Amino acid sequence: MGMPEPEPHAPRHAGRAASPDFDAKHFRRALSQFATGVTIITTRAASGAGTPFVGITASSFNSVSMDPPLVLWSMATTANSLPMFRDGSHYIINVLSASQLDLCQRFATLKGDRFAGVDYRLSETGLPVLANALAWFECHNRSRYDEGDHIIFVGEVERCGVPGSGGHPLVFHGGAFSTTSPLGD
């Protein structure tokens, strides 16, 4: 018996990634080619804040597990509202419809009370569920992971809903907002 043939592409050492061969602008452009849904994530504000709630626009939402029901999302470590999400016990993930672009922009840019004049109801834990969202997930703040310049939140879904008659989702792709339409039958 002879010696086994070496594998043509041996795996890299698993201990450390190679340095990137691209700059941040190129990386952002490549990431923008992946279409994502858009959410607004809400929770309770710190006591003494002008409004009882905080909310942020996020497109980093994803499912993790069916059993137990887990979802994830991430937030920049520099975000002003990070302590409320990191330290709170619950949050709501509201999946936006294409008709909610104004809310998306409001919760991404407005300073002050982002909830002023916004239609919502309170969940069982007393957090805002936005009216006309395509779906919502009420999550226990199960775990958090510091990774790079973001914190990854894993939420255990305690309740969820699909309140309306559907509609098209708000989608972010290529640096612009759009929506989806079915491809054939």
Rank of each mutant, 00 (worst) to 15 (best):
V162W: 10
F27Y: 12
D21F: 06
R44W: 00
G174V: 07
Y145G: 03
C139R: 02
T39N: 15
G2R: 06
T43E: 00
G37C: 10
R16W: 06
T36I: 03
A133G: 06
G50C: 08
A17D: 14
E156M: 09
S89K: 08
M75W: 02
V64Q: 01
V54W: 03
S99G: 14
G148H: 01
A18R: 10
A133C: 14
Q100W: 09
S178T: 04
L130N: 09
G166W: 12
H168T: 11
E124P: 14
S65Q: 06
T39W: 00
H168E: 15
T43K: 00
S165E: 15
F27G: 00
V38H: 05
F27N: 00
G155D: 09
Y91Q: 02
P169S: 14
Y91G: 00
G2P: 13
R12Y: 15
D21L: 10
T39K: 01
H90W: 03
G167W: 04
S178M: 03
F22E: 10
I152H: 02
D149R: 04
H140W: 02
M84Q: 14
Y145T: 10
I92S: 07
S63M: 13
P8M: 02
P182N: 03
L130Q: 08
P4D: 14
S32A: 14
G112S: 02
C104F: 11
P68L: 07
T179P: 01
L70A: 10
G126D: 04
L110A: 15
S32C: 03
M66Q: 12
T78Q: 06
P4W: 02
E7K: 09
V118D: 05
S165K: 14
P182K: 00
V64A: 06
D185E: 15
F107C: 02
I93K: 01
Y145S: 05
T42K: 08
R121H: 11
S178A: 10
V162S: 10
F22T: 03
T179D: 12
T43R: 00
T78H: 02
F153H: 02
P52N: 05
D146P: 05
S99N: 15
E7Y: 13
R16T: 15
N141V: 07
